[in-house]
Design a protein around this nucleic acid. Structure first.
Lengths: 351, 351
DNA sequence: ATGAAAGCGCTAACAT
DNA sequence: ATGTTAGCGCTTTCAT
């Protein structure tokens, strides 16, 4: 036992002072539905207030097998995309007496595994998993196994992104998003596209590629694999991709495509920046569109798809609470997306 | 007791399976320095791995009076300013086996109080308090009292911002920041300034006003109270302030000031946006500078002061760990600031 | 309506 | 080196 200052006031203190048993004190203070005489109840409440009693949630959790703690796994809190999701989760959590433990994984499978273990050790009631990790098969297997154990232990696992062949619980349709974007671009006369995606190993990337190819096919456009540029969703990836596209077009003295879709607004911002650095006019020579509608999209005038991030977190947390309360698991819920047209997209250059 | 699936494997399970007492199992699994025979140790470790044992941190915390949980109070995680601080805290926390509970307060004193109570109930080892709240005296008193109780209970309280006359533990010098900014602007010939601050009730606002006035005085510039515009640090506040300044100058057919300092990069962004909306050229007619150096500052070409946000969180968490380990409390640590000159500031308009 | 006692899973004196 | 015992602070049968 670490030497610490004066013990906090416990139920025993309240009980003693109120002249009742610990049991009775517990009954009034823990919101038990067990009958307690009105007078007794008042007395206990008074003493509790007087002593500023705060129940020890550790003890409570130990016996209740419920901690009212939820762990959230995200790539990086510093990315507004995830910050807004976490905020949504936290708002609902706060209202319902839950605490939120944030876990930034940086897409590092080892960190993810370590975090999941720790959350299990903490006996969290639920884990909200946002963002799929890029990892080798072995790591993936271990992570899946850890998640399985957490669920086996009674915790609720909710996904905001596809993971290891499992559908997300609350999410959005990437296909729908691409549909909005491509419809918009096609209406502007574009038919040569490039896509700056996320790491190839990510589940979400697989899904995105497939979805994009399908959307394009609907417009009778064949999507060449060479126009699928691998990135990591960062601004730097966008800058690099712009450079790559400019250099690829060098021979023809013009760009190989007239429109570039990015997996994130960050990458789109990088594309705009990169094109500008090479003197390529956006949207004059090439249109650029992002995905997410972060603040930066507004600042930079990026055409993008608005993703209801706060609602995503909000919905996930509500579901977690619902299930913890004994509610039945439900299927995937796709939140509506919206096209936001700004200055980074325009008519395809005639030529 | 809530009905839950199969119990998790406990120390007792490991002990039984390894043929040792729970105590022995605990000794090897909890990293106790108590001697244990090498063979026994190995056996226990084997069984623990086999059963994928994870210690119940609730039970551990209950007896150890240490939870390895730290609560972080910030205005809003969605603001990159705070997100980066939290990230700094979390990186150190992760390395040291601590979990981070995030608490968005929205500068709402009631939420702050509620969160602090909850953190106390959770028996967190430390609370890192970032951002001062705006509240009436009564609320302030209650919050201070709650924080006092948390400390009395043995938790470490660390401040990243001044609060109720208490100095922050890890922070930066607002005066230094203003110094960098004002020196820069004065060298550009500016001598009529306006400041778009945060809510007047905030401690940090008081400090900022005082610091700014002093810095200006160093340059022999008197700062008029009427040029102190109250805002809330948001972009909208900046937009409003720009409008206000433009309208104030209406009579003279020109702006009353040639340079505007903002309390945050967000407000500075709003100022730039607002001035643009009124056809005022930045920096041609007026220079605008922010504070923080968030990503948006780079995107918008804002001259600002770079605040080492990650290091702020990092430093606070390291300190918390140090103190929890029995280290002595130390005085305020001011992290170095840096002037970042971009396109939003320029020579004062001659005339 | 109230209370006594058992136990959640763990660590730490205190034996042996 | 190992085990026995006593809690940490709480909820909950099971009496009364």
């Amino acid at each position: 036992v670490t030497s610490r200052s004066s013990r906090l006031t416990s139920l025993a203190d309240v009980a003693a002072r109120a002249g009742v048993s610990i049991t009775t004190a517990s009954r009034v203070l823990s919101g038990s539905r067990h009958p307690v005489a009105a007078a007794t109840r008042t007395r206990v409440l008074e003493v509790a207030a007087e002593l500023d009693f705060e129940p020890n949630l550790l003890a409570r959790g130990l016996v209740m097998h419920r901690t009212h703690i939820v762990g959230v796994l995200v790539h990086d809190l510093t990315d507004e995309f995830y910050a807004r999701i976490v905020r949504g989760i936290e708002d609902v959590a706060f209202e319902n007496g839950f605490s939120v433990v944030v876990c930034d994984t940086d897409r590092d499978a080892d960190k993810e595994i370590a975090y999941v273990r720790r959350l299990r050790s903490q006996r969290v009631d639920a884990i909200i998993y946002a963002g799929s990790s890029a990892a080798d098969a072995a790591k993936q297997t271990e992570l899946v196994e850890q998640l399985r154990r957490v669920e086996a232990a009674g915790a609720v696992l909710l996904r905001l992104a596809p993971h290891a062949t499992v559908e997300p619980d609350v999410s959005y349709s990437t296909r729908e998003g691409f549909g909005l974007l491509v419809d918009h671009l096609v209406s502007f006369g574009h038919h040569e596209f490039a896509y700056v995606g996320a790491p190839a190993a990510l589940n979400s990337t697989r899904v995105a590629r497939y979805a994009l190819a399908e959307v394009l096919r609907r417009h009778g456009i064949e999507f060449r694999a060479s126009r699928m540029i691998t990135g990591d969703g960062t601004r730097a990836a966008g800058v690099d991709a712009a450079k790559h596209l400019v250099e690829t077009g060098r021979g023809d003295a013009e760009l190989p495509v007239t429109a570039v879709l990015a997996a994130t607004d960050h990458a789109a911002a990088g594309l705009v920046q990169g094109f500008a650095a090479h003197g390529v006019d956006v949207p004059g020579e090439v249109s650029v569109v992002g995905f997410g509608d972060l603040t930066l999209a507004g600042d930079l005038g990026l055409t993008t798809v608005h993703v209801p991030l706060h609602a995503l977190g909000d919905g996930a947390m509500k579901r977690a609470i619902w299930i913890l309360g004994g509610g039945a698991r439900m299927g995937r819920d796709n939140l509506p997306l919206e096209l936001v047209v700004r200055a980074s997209s325009g008519p395809a250059p005639s030529g």
